[in-house]
């Protein structure tokens, strides 16, 4: 089953890179949903010989929260036409991909020097999760729209989650659920706040989103 974990890890990194290289918000959300969907199978691959109820629960909860509900919330958030429009990243898409490739290389290079104590199912888990995190950060930094920053944050969380799976026994399942739920509520509250911001801007007729403190939303 190591093969399947390896495949999932590589796909997760690849999809994180695709999020970075997409400039349509709808596309980004869809890619994120696929990434979460793949991620939700990883708990099942971990103990392939004896899948326990705990693995199935974690897998199901991940799938429902991350692959269905979070994208649904994000789609709800961009239901206004104006939000669907193309976004202009701070640096071009080609450059983003190039930087992303460099980040992946960095992640692999860093994880060479990190020796995991004990045996690990797949040696790809650590570098891939680091790479996903870095790509998520990159998405957050280079995009100006608030919704894309949320997406970047979620990609970071997916990277962390991939890593968390490799040390399954240290975290009791309740805490894992707490973490998942927290992240879900975070996205929910972010979407609500964004919604309020949009309403406020439509009401006051603001366009650029630059306030008197000089900050952009």
């Amino acid at each position: 089953m190591t093969l399947w974990i390896d495949v999932s890890c590589i796909l997760v990194v690849f999809l994180a890179l695709s999020v970075l290289a997409t400039n349509r918000i709808v596309g980004m959300i869809k890619i994120f949903a696929v990434q979460s969907f793949i991620l939700s199978f990883v708990p099942l691959f971990l103990h392939a010989d004896a899948v326990s109820g705990r693995d199935i629960t974690l897998s199901l909860v991940t799938m429902v929260l991350k692959a269905i509900l979070v994208p649904a919330i994000l789609f709800w958030q961009i239901r206004h036409i104006s939000m669907r429009s193309e976004i202009k990243p701070l640096i071009g898409l080609g450059t983003s991909i190039l930087f992303g490739a460099v980040l992946i290389a960095v992640a692999f290079w860093v994880s060479l020097s990190l020796r995991l104590p004990g045996k690990l199912l797949s040696s790809l888990v650590l570098p891939c999760s680091l790479a996903t995190m870095l790509l998520g950060f990159m998405t957050m930094v280079t995009r100006t729209r608030a919704i894309t920053q949320v997406l970047g944050y979620m990609v970071i969380e997916n990277g962390i989650f991939l890593f968390a799976l490799s040390l399954f026994d240290a975290m009791p399942v309740l805490i894992e659920m707490g973490i998942l739920l927290d992240i879900f509520v975070a996205v929910l509250i972010m979407a609500i706040v964004l919604n309020h911001i949009n309403e406020e801007f439509e009401r006051t007729g603001g366009s650029a989103g630059r306030s008197k403190t000089g900050e952009t939303v």
Binding site: Q149, I189, I197, G206, S211, T213, E215
Partner: peptide, 15 residues
């Protein structure tokens, strides 16, 4: 207080 300033501050804090 729902206004531009507080919402921007909330957003920044949250993120």
């Amino acid at each position: 207080h729902h206004n531009r300033g507080t919402l921007e501050a909330t957003w920044r804090y949250l993120l």
